[in-house]
Each structure stands twice: as structure tokens, then as C-alpha cells.
Design a protein around this nucleic acid. Structure first.
Length: 276
DNA sequence: CATTACCTGCAA
DNA sequence: TTGCAGGTAATG
């Protein structure tokens, strides 16, 4: 699933529904390794009675700030969904965690592939999570110069570099391909070969692609939904991702699919050039 | 660096 | 039946 725009949409849509609410119960914890700490009763005891102060995002983590200094950090990985449900809504088979709130609504964590993770963090744990990730690409501190410094001296190919959460937070397989298409950079370009103009173009492209995807409330290919259960619309606006064989919207050449670092990668072989 | 593992479902 | 999927961690 979810990359930065999807996680941002989930967090934003959760905020008005959960801020200020008390967690009064934990149900359906049938996949204990999903939560940390476990086993399930330990996790449940720590969570029950906590108040949710706000919902926000760091990298691809949804963060629920709780009282007493705790943070519930939820990662949707490939197929996770976080939705707020009415009291009479029944949990489908892939719901592995339910947080009951004091207004009788319930937060469902639904995850078909069971890759998702939920971690209860204290202040030190939250600081460690933050430190493990690179800058937020939509933060004003993420400048073209900051991106150029990240690229400098790294011989790795640019596409896998963009997926490395330690270097830049929040990009995933869709938006890496989209940003490189927009910046007219070849996914196999060595990072260190991208000049200042290329870094500036890539910086702008990353932000444009992410802002647009947030405006469309994310991309729904299979599983992704916002916290009201609604699909995103950004998949209607892809220019490279999942478009193999279709004409490039800039030059008309056929978009190609290649595999880079074991991930599908889509690009235009004509107008995304390798640096000399 | 590449490979495998973690899981399930769907389309070719 | 095989391959593939918005991700990441753990291995050679």
C-alpha cells in the first residue's frame, strides 16, 4: 500500500474522528506478532484507558499521540487499512486489531497480508523511530540543496536510493517512478552523477508528485482506503507507474517496465536520459 | 549488492 | 500454476 500520500490521508482523516477520544477496549488481537509489545494481553493492558491526543504522520507511520507520553505507531506496509467504524459494523476476516473508543466507534486495523505492525512507543522509542528516517520531503527544510547533499557521493542508482527511508522519508515504489518521470531522470542513473540542475528538478518533482497525490487522497490500487473507507483517486493520474506499453505523455514513446533492485520500475526510455 | 522471508489474493 | 503486488528486515 501506502506511501507518504496515503499515510498522510489516513492520518488527516483520522484526526477529527479520534482526537480527544479514550481507548476503552482492545479486541480481535488474533495476530500477536503484529503488535509490540506482545503477547496480546500485555499490549491490551497498556493501551486500555489511554486517551488519543492527535493523529499525525512520520515517514510511512501513522502516529497516534496518547496521554502519559505514549505514542501508538502503526505501519500499514502493503495491505493495511485503518478505518473508523460505526458501532454495528462487523469486522471482516482480515481485521486483526480493534480499538474501541468512548463514543462507541471502533478503529479497525485490517491487513490482508499481515505485514502491518503496531508499536507502542515511549518518548525514547519515538525518538528512535524519528532518527531512523530521513527528512520529510514536504518539510520546508527539505531543500534542493539538502537533496543534492544526499545524492552527492552515493554511487547507488537513484531509484533504489529514493526508496531508502533512512535517506528520504515516505517515498515508495509508485512515487519514486512518478518523480523520476517528472524530473526526466533515468531510474538507473547513479545518484552521484546527478548534477545540481538534476537535483533541483528532482526536488521539485518529488514535491509536486506528493502534493498532487495528497490532493487526490492517495492512490488505491487494491487495498488502500482512507479512514472513512473511501478510495483515493490518484491512480487515475499516473504518468509512469503501471503504464508499461502506453505512450509517454511528454514524448509519445512507449513507457517501459524494468526491474531495479527487485522492484518494478516504470520510465520513458526516450525522455528520461542517463547522465553522460 | 542480491536473495529470501514475511503473508494472502488475484490475474495471466 | 506461476508471478506479481503501495514494504521492510534479515540474511549471504
Amino acid at each position: 500500500m501506502p506511501e507518504l500520500p496515503e499515510v498522510e490521508t489516513v492520518a488527516r482523516s483520522l484526526e477529527p474522528q479520534v482526537a480527544g477520544r479514550l481507548i476503552v477496549g482492545v479486541e480481535r488481537l488474533d495476530w500477536a506478532r503484529m503488535v509490540e509489545p506482545h503477547p496480546a494481553p500485555v499490549f491490551s493492558d497498556l493501551i486500555t484507558g489511554r486517551r488519543i491526543l492527535r493523529a499525525h504522520r512520520r515517514a510511512k507511520w501513522v502516529l497516534l499521540a496518547l496521554d502519559a507520553g505514549w505514542t501508538l505507531a502503526l505501519h500499514l506496509r502493503m495491505s493495511g487499512r485503518l478505518t473508523v467504524q460505526a458501532p454495528d459494523d462487523v469486522a471482516r476476516p482480515h481485521v486483526h486489531l480493534i480499538l474501541t473508543l468512548d463514543n462507541d466507534r471502533r478503529i479497525f486495523f485490517d491487513d490482508e497480508r499481515k505485514f502491518g505492525r503496531v508499536r507502542l512507543l515511549d518518548a525514547a522509542g519515538l525518538a528512535a523511530l524519528d532518527a531512523a528516517h530521513g527528512p520529510e520531503p514536504l518539510d520546508e527544510r527539505f531543500t534542493a540543496a539538502a537533496l543534492a547533499r544526499i545524492l552527492a557521493g552515493r554511487r547507488t542508482k537513484i531509484k533504489p536510493l529514493l526508496l531508502d527511508q533512512r535517506l528520504i522519508a515516505g517515498l515508495g515504489n509508485i512515487y519514486a517512478s512518478e518523480a523520476l518521470w517528472l524530473a526526466q531522470l533515468h531510474p538507473l542513473a547513479p545518484a552521484s552523477a546527478i548534477d545540481a540542475a538534476g537535483a533541483t528538478a528532482l526536488h521539485a518533482a518529488i514535491r509536486t508528485v506528493l502534493h498532487q497525490a495528497i490532493a487526490y487522497e492517495g492512490s488505491s490500487l487494491r487495498n488502500y482506503r482512507n479512514s472513512y473507507g473511501a478510495r483515493g483517486q490518484n491512480q487515475e493520474h499516473f504518468l509512469a507507474y503501471d503504464r508499461a506499453g502506453t505512450p509517454c505523455q511528454r514524448c509519445g514513446a512507449a513507457i517501459e517496465r524494468i526491474v531495479v533492485a527487485q522492484r518494478s520500475t516504470f520510465f520513458c526510455p526516450t525522455c528520461q536520459r542517463l547522465p553522460d
